[in-house]
């Protein structure tokens, strides 16, 4: 899918969420669903299977989100699945989050961590990233056990990797 298409879908999501005045809620729900989708290949394959009826795939989305998501979020996810763009769902959501953050003059940073961060750590991390990038950063935390320990932060094309996984990989390279 071309970047223009991704941006178009992101703009559409942004327009719908803004119209419902639920940008923050929709962002969080879509981001979590995106992370869940990335970690489950079977779900990706099922939602991307064109041989299944669209209604069946939409029903799967409805069942997954259930009552844990707003109607707007469910409608948007169902719209993307019905349009056959579920394979690029993550990209569309990332573009939507960036679009939404940009509307607030903020930059989104994706933080992967092995544990859940408390609010103090999040505030300190936001302040540290603001100082390091000279931007008004907004973070999205992803729990990723493969990190083992520490954090990995992605801001645009920049990656700040302070994970135990990286140190172990460096150690592995040194052995070769």
């Amino acid at each position: 899918m071309a970047d223009n298409a991704i941006a178009g879908y992101a703009d559409a999501l942004y327009a719908v969420a803004a119209a419902d005045n639920a940008l923050s809620t929709v962002e969080d729900e879509l981001f979590r669903f995106s992370q869940a989708l990335n970690s489950d290949e079977n779900l990706q394959t099922t939602l991307d299977d064109s041989s299944l009826p669209v209604e069946r795939r939409q029903q799967i989305v409805e069942d997954l989100l259930g009552g844990s998501a707003s109607l707007t979020t469910k409608a948007l996810v169902s719209m993307i699945v019905a349009s056959g763009r579920s394979s690029r769902f993550s990209s569309i959501v990332d573009a939507f989050i960036e679009r939404s953050a940009a509307s607030r003059n903020k930059t989104v940073a994706t933080v992967r961590s092995a544990i859940e961060l408390d609010d103090t750590q999040k505030d300190r991390l936001v302040a540290a990233l603001n100082g390091a990038t000279n931007k008004d950063v907004e973070i999205k935390v992803v729990i990723d056990p493969s990190v083992i320990g520490g954090l990995v932060t992605e801001i645009g094309d920049d990656i700040i990797d302070g994970s135990v996984r990286r140190r172990l990989n460096q150690l592995r390279e040194n052995f070769r």
């Binding site: 544990i115 300190r124 540290a128 990233l129 954090l151 302070g162």
Partner: peptide, 12 residues
């Protein structure tokens, strides 16, 4: 948590 704090300190 110490690793996270250490990371935040390094970034800061």
């Amino acid at each position: 948590r110490r690793l996270v704090d250490q990371y935040i300190d390094e970034v800061a």
